[in-house]
Write a protein that binds this DNA or RNA. Sequence first.
DNA 1: GCCGTATTACGATGGCTATCGTAGAAGGCG
DNA 2: CGCCTTCTACGATAGCCATCGTAATACGGC
Lengths: 123, 123
Amino acid sequence: MTPQTAPAARALEHPERTAIRLEGVLHALSDPMRLHVVRTLAAAETELACSDVELPVSKSTTTHHFRVLREAGVIEQNYRGTSKMSGLRREDLDALFPNLLDSVLAAAEGQCERIHPGATAAR
Amino acid sequence: MTPQTAPAARALEHPERTAIRLEGVLHALSDPMRLHVVRTLAAAETELACSDVELPVSKSTTTHHFRVLREAGVIEQNYRGTSKMSGLRREDLDALFPNLLDSVLAAAEGQCERIHPGATAAR
DNA sequence: GCCGTATTACGATGGCTATCGTAGAAGGCG
DNA sequence: CGCCTTCTACGATAGCCATCGTAATACGGC
């Protein structure tokens, strides 16, 4: 067995809560692909693997978007086996910017509805 | 006399309410200069001339930022004499993205307080 | 130990964009 | 009419960034 309590795996850099900047978060959310990722993560209330979020771009580009989101402090990621699980940093975001995430998610949903009325899923 | 009731001056292009896209708004707000402009406009509840908002950049760059905000649908602008007055499109934004603008403004304020505690004015 | 799956690193590329300075247009004022 | 203030247009430049393909790495299972 592994000597440590947690396997730890490779560590990924995450900004501390106090280092998260509003401009960075807004910029991260201003890309359609990344907004889609965030909406998907918000809908699935558990962590998801990168490959669970389907994007119409190459794998490398998907990785890039996940990294931007992580470095902006929007999501947290850690390795679990061969997958990398991602989840929203809801607590941190809500503490720093109350209501912001929910407003953005609601706005995204509303805009989707306006464009494709009756669509159930995202984008 | 001019045939129309309003002098109209030069006209400026504004996106219709239905053409305003969330991603564009988020992107417009993700620049520190533009965020500062928006905060200033929100604080002063009247319209302001471009030159009333002091930015640490050149005049041309300021003009550029105002245009980005206008084209994203965040502000509206019209000429009045030698000045160009700008104001937030609060009604449109609140209708499309309820609560979003207020969340962003509150988040910006909170972040400012966190960084420069006790500062009264913006940024 | 070998293989397949999942993700990353690297390098390249094209496009967007924040910034500047200078020159010019629009309008008020003496 | 000339001047000043305000804003805009036009290049130009440098930096960032979304995207890709290929090669490499990490891990679990056989």
